[in-house]
Nucleic acid binder design. Structure first.
Lengths: 160, 160
DNA sequence: TTGATTGTGGGTTTTGAGCCCAATAGGATG
DNA sequence: CATCCTATTGGGCTCAAAACCCACAATCAA
């Protein structure tokens, strides 16, 4: 993970009639490489994520390495959550996309239904530290309600 | 916490049609840095808070810096979904804002609905010792009614 | 080949944030 | 009481970003 980045910020955008979204320029800036390319992944229903290509690759490699190591040392039995996470990651369908004019993303066929947002409706663009996420408003509210109470403990734990 | 500050005071202001509020000059003075920047945070529905960037940093950015460092040194490999989740919550919870003319705050998109005060209506600006709070009148009354009875005991306890 | 549909790259319009200044109000001062 | 000063507020101007619109290319089907 190219660690210098830590993306935060929140913005509302609307999907135009051709399934395009304009990302906030700062986010587009950090997420895309010099050709304007990045990785679009299905995160969960109602949510897509955008990654720097290098980070995405690293994420997969690291995950694989981690699991291999655990299998070898016979520690797999108690860590099914990691296996699950990896499986999810690998089976998550993703593809490379390019941002037109450095900031306009066309949501490809196959990802549209997954996002569950109809044309000419709003999405939330959210910085998630290591990636940028695109949420349907409904899923976003749901996730907030679910995760907000965990904020304190999680912050304490991760920064310990 | 830069301990020399202890903000008190109360004022009524109205949010203008461009979502601007003018802070009492004494408060604006103490919470903003030399560039007029400070941190705006979502406190609870109906209440926003303003912090000196330096103080906020003590609370949050130190932790973020630590997490960044952990990411860089590869100590977050198995925690990426948690990092994502945390980043997401950080994104919605706060952002840095700058005060125009040293005292006028533009309430950003995303914080407006949270405050629940329509344009051209009043808010209460309240000094809360270490930060400045912006309350919707309804939430303010509610909080007062809730907290007032505790004031005596609390004051006695804290000043003992 | 033709026409419809979708992707792509512009351009233009509109919106909103930042900045500035003017008008008002109210307090302090001489 | 007259004057000055400063805090607050309202509104205008400008610029950049976002939304909107259109023209063209590519693809595919009839």
């Amino acid at each position: 993970m190219s660690g210098e980045i830590f993306i935060t910020g929140e913005a509302k955008r609307t999907i135009d009639d051709r399934f395009r979204v304009t990302l906030p320029s700062e986010m587009a800036e950090v997420i895309s490489d010099s050709d304007g390319n990045c990785i679009l992944a299905k995160e969960r229903s109602g949510c897509l994520s955008l990654w720097r290509a290098a980070d995405w690759q690293k994420r997969i490699d690291d995950g694989v390495a981690l699991i291999k190591q655990k299998i070898q040392t016979g520690r797999m039995e108690s860590r099914w959550s990691d296996v699950q996470r990896l499986g999810r990651m690998l089976s998550t369908r993703y593809r490379t996309v390019s941002l037109a004019n450095r900031s306009r993303l066309l949501i490809p066929e196959g990802f549209r239904e997954f996002l569950e947002v109809p044309v000419n409706h709003d999405v939330m663009i959210v910085g998630a530290a290591i990636c940028v996420e695109i949420w349907s408003p409904a899923a976003w509210l749901e996730a907030l309600r679910e995760d907000m109470p965990k904020f304190g403990p999680l912050f304490t734990e991760l920064s310990a």
